[in-house]
Design a protein around this nucleic acid. Structure first.
Lengths: 201, 201
DNA sequence: TGACATCCATGACATCTGTCATGGCGCGAT
DNA sequence: ATCGCGCCATGACAGATGTCATGGATGTCA
C-alpha cells in the first residue's frame, strides 16, 4: 500500500484528486493540506511515502516545501503537480531534487502511474516540457533584478519601487533596464510577463 | 439519476472531478469536454440535465458557452465552476442566466449539492462572493476601451496597439487614459491588473 | 593579487506615456 | 430635434520611462 500526502490549496480540486487516487487499489491518501507550510508536519505525522505538491499555494509555495522536505525527510518521494508548465518551475523542481513533475493538463492516469514509478526510484518528467525548459535556458536575472521586477509586477511606479526596496530611482531604472534587455522585452510590463511565463518570478 | 456534462480544459482536474461526482449515487457524468466550443454538441448528444462549466477554456470560454447553451437548450441547468472568484465573472454569469456559480476553493461537497439544488430550481451562489461582486460594481469600461486595454495587456507599445486595432496613436492613448481613470489605476499596467482581477477582460 | 561580477548610485538624454482641450461623427433616448 | 454618450482624431504639454556612460563598494574565484 502506497501512502500519499496531497498538498493543494483549492479544496475542490484537492478532494477530487483524492477521490481519483482513491480509485486505485494500491494507493491511499493519508493526509491532505492546503498550505505549503503545513507539508512537513503532515508528512511527519502521517508517515506518507510520497508527497504530491502543488506549486501555487499560500504560506509557502510547493517548491519551497519540496526543498524543506528534501532536507528533513530525504526518503520521501516528491511529485510536483502544477497547473502551469513554466520552464523555470521544472528547472527549479529538478534542482531541488523532486522525483516527478506533472502538469494538470496531462491525463489523469499519469498521476497514479507517476506515484508508483517514483516509488520504484524512477524520475518522471513530461518530455515535451523538459525540451522547452532546456531550450528556454536558465533564469538570466540576478537576484536583485528579480526583486525589482517582482516589485514592478503590480504596476508600481519607479519611485514606489525605490522606496519599497530602499533604492534610488536611478538604480531601479537600471535594474529594470537590464531586466528588459535580458528578457528581450519591449518594456517593463513585457519583461514582467515574460519572466512570469517562464517561472522566474 | 442526474446526468451531468463536465467542461474543463485540464484533463487531470476534469477526470478527478468526474471521479468525485462518480462517488455520488444519484449523479452520473455522461459527457466530458475540454473546450468551450464543444459544449453544445456534447449536451445535445448526451442529453445531460446539468452542464458544469469551467470559465478558462480554449476555443470559447465557459461564459460564452453558457450563453450559447442558454439560448439553444433552455431547459439545461448551468453551473459555473471556476478557479477565480472574479466579481465580473459572477456578474456576467448571472446576467447570462447561469443557475449556480462555484469556486474551486469551496469544499468538494458543495459540487454535488449545487448540482442537486439547481435541478430543483434553486440558484446557488457563494454569499461572500456575491457581496464583493455587488460592492465592486459593474464594469465601467466601454467596449472599445476594453479592446484597447486587452491589447495592452501583453506589454505592447502604443504604436503596436494602434496598428493592430487600426487606430491612431492618440486615440489609443486617450482610451488607455480613460481606462486608467475609470479603474483608479496608477498607469497602464496597473489598469490591466485591476481589470483582470475584476474579471473585466 | 588581479580579474570579474554584482550592486548601488548619478546625471544626461531621447523617447514613451498620460493628460487635457477641442472638435467631428453617429446613434439612441427624451 | 436636441441632448448625451461613445467613438475617433489632433496637438500640446509635463512627467515617467528606458538607455547609456561612468564610477565606487563588495565579494568571489583563479
Amino acid at each position: 500500500m502506497i501512502n500519499v500526502l496531497l498538498a493543494e490549496d483549492q479544496a475542490m480540486v484537492r478532494e477530487a484528486l483524492a477521490a481519483l487516487l482513491g480509485l486505485e487499489e494500491d494507493i491511499r491518501v493519508v493526509a491532505q493540506v492546503a498550505r505549503g507550510d503545513e507539508v512537513l508536519e503532515a508528512i511527519r505525522t502521517s508517515g506518507a511515502d510520497v508527497a504530491l505538491l502543488d506549486i501555487e499555494m499560500p504560506g509557502q509555495d510547493g517548491l519551497a516545501a519540496a526543498a524543506e522536505l528534501r532536507r528533513a525527510v530525504p526518503g520521501c518521494r516528491i511529485v510536483m503537480l502544477t497547473t502551469f508548465g513554466r520552464p523555470g518551475y521544472l528547472r527549479r523542481a529538478m534542482e531541488l531534487g523532486a522525483d516527478a513533475f506533472l502538469v494538470k493538463d496531462a491525463p489523469a492516469a499519469q498521476l497514479a502511474d507517476a506515484v508508483r514509478r517514483v516509488l520504484r526510484g524512477e524520475r518522471v518528467i513530461d518530455p515535451t516540457l523538459a525540451a522547452t525548459a532546456l531550450s528556454v535556458g536558465a533564469d538570466p536575472l540576478t537576484e536583485r533584478e528579480r526583486d525589482v521586477l517582482r516589485a514592478a509586477a503590480d504596476g508600481s511606479t519607479v519611485s514606489e519601487i525605490a522606496s519599497r526596496l530602499h533604492l534610488s530611482e536611478g538604480t531601479v531604472r537600471n535594474h529594470l533596464s537590464s531586466c528588459i534587455g535580458k528578457t528581450h522585452a519591449r518594456n517593463r510590463a513585457d519583461a514582467v510577463r515574460i519572466a512570469h511565463e517562464n517561472g522566474w518570478l
